[in-house]
Design a protein around this nucleic acid. Structure first.
Lengths: 194, 194
DNA sequence: GTCTATATGTTGATAGAC
DNA sequence: GTCTATCAACATATAGAC
C-alpha cells in the first residue's frame, strides 16, 4: 500500500478517537514517517480529514447499495430486519460510530458545514431508496402511502437513537445484542399493527 | 457572579463548541482574566470540564423533575406529548445538544468513562420515572405492561434520533418544527394503535 | 485573587539537503 | 519522497510578586 493510502487508513482510526483535534504527529507516528513527509501527499491537516470523511461517506453509501441489492434475495418481510441489522453491524465494526459522531462536531466551521451537507445528501438519497423498499415490503398491510414516509423516518430515527446508545454505553458492561433485538421487535410490532 | 461561576458558565459554551480540546486561554479570554488566575479556582483543565459536565447533567435532571411535576396539571393524554416537546426544547436552547454530544467523545479515557457512567445513571433513573408516567397515561389502552417498557425505550430512541438530526442539520436550512411535529404524530399514532 | 514571567512541551507548517 | 532543522504560535502548568 502506498503512503497516501496508509495515511488515510490511519486517519480513519485517529479521527474516530480524537476528532478534528487529531495531530499531524499522531498521523506521522501511526504511519511510521516524519511529519514533513505528510505534506508531500496532502496540502495540510484539513485536506487529509476532508478526504478521509469523503471516503468514509462514500464507503457507507457503497455498502448500503450492496446491501440493497443483496436483500432482494431474501423474503420480502425479512428485508427490513436484515437491513436494520446490517446497518447496525456496519457502525459497530471498528470505531465507525465515533467517526461519524466526530464528523458533525468539527470545530472548523467550514469543514463541518461541508461535512454535514455531505451527510444530509447521503441520507436523503438513502431515504428515497428505503421508501421504495418499504412500499415493496409492506404491500399487503393497510399502510397508506403517506404513512410509509413517516415509518421510514422512524426507521432512521430508531437507528440513530440506537447508535447513540451504543456510544454512551461504549465503556460499560451492556447486553447490546439483546437490546438491539428488543428494539427491532418493538419497531416491527408497532408498524405491523399500524 | 463570582469568578468560579463565571468560568463554569463560559466553559459550558466552549465545551459545546470545541469539546475536550477547549483551551485554558479560551476560558481565560472569555471570562476576562489571565490563564494563571484560573488555577486559583480549579486544579486544572480536567477538573473544570468534569465540574461543568456534572453541573449540566444535574441541571437536566432537575429540569426533568420539574417537568414531571408540572405535567401533572395537564390531561393525562397530553402529558407525554408535552414532555417530548419540553425535552427537545431543552436541548434546542443554546448549544446543549453539542455539549451532550461532546461529552461522549472526550478523548481522555478516564474522564469519558466517568461522563458516560453519569449519563447512564441519569438515563436509567429517567427511564423508571417515565415508565410510571406511561402506565398512568395509557391506562385504558390495551397495552400490556411488558409492552410499556418497550414503548418507553422507543420514546427515548425517538428523542435521541431527533437530536442527532438536529446536529446534522445545524448549519443548513431546515424546517425543524414541522419535522418534530411529524415525528411526534407518527409515534403517537403507532403506540395508540398498539 | 490576580497578575507577570517563565518553564516545557506540542501544534501546523515550511525551507532546503539528500 | 523522505528527511533534519527550524519557525512562530499555542498548549498546560507553576513560581512568586503585588
Amino acid at each position: 500500500m502506498d503512503t497516501k493510502e496508509e495515511i488515510l487508513k490511519n486517519v480513519n482510526t485517529l479521527f474516530a478517537q480524537k476528532g478534528y483535534s487529531l495531530s499531524m504527529s499522531d498521523i506521522a507516528k501511526s504511519v511510521g514517517i516524519k511529519v514533513p513527509s505528510i505534506y508531500n501527499h496532502f496540502t495540510g491537516k484539513d485536506e487529509i480529514i476532508w478526504t478521509a470523511i469523503q471516503i468514509e461517506v462514500a464507503d457507507f453509501f457503497e455498502f448500503m447499495d450492496m446491501e440493497l441489492i443483496q436483500i432482494n434475495a431474501t423474503p420480502s418481510l425479512e428485508r427490513l430486519k436484515l437491513l436494520f441489522y446490517s446497518i447496525i453491524q456496519y457502525f459497530a465494526y471498528g470505531d465507525k460510530i465515533q467517526f461519524w459522531r466526530n464528523m458533525s462536531l468539527i470545530s472548523n466551521l467550514e469543514l463541518r458545514k461541508n461535512t454535514n451537507a455531505l451527510i444530509c445528501d447521503m441520507e436523503n438519497n438513502m431515504y428515497k431508496k428505503l421508501q421504495m423498499i418499504f412500499i415493496e415490503c409492506l404491500p399487503d398491510k393497510k399502510t397508506e402511502y403517506e404513512n410509509i414516509e413517516d415509518i421510514v423516518l422512524f426507521y432512521f430515527l430508531m437507528i440513530k437513537g440506537l447508535l447513540d446508545v451504543m456510544i454512551t454505553h461504549q465503556d460499560i458492561q451492556f447486553e447490546l445484542s439483546t437490546y438491539i433485538d428488543k428494539i427491532w421487535n418493538t419497531y416491527w410490532g408497532l408498524i405491523s399493527r399500524a
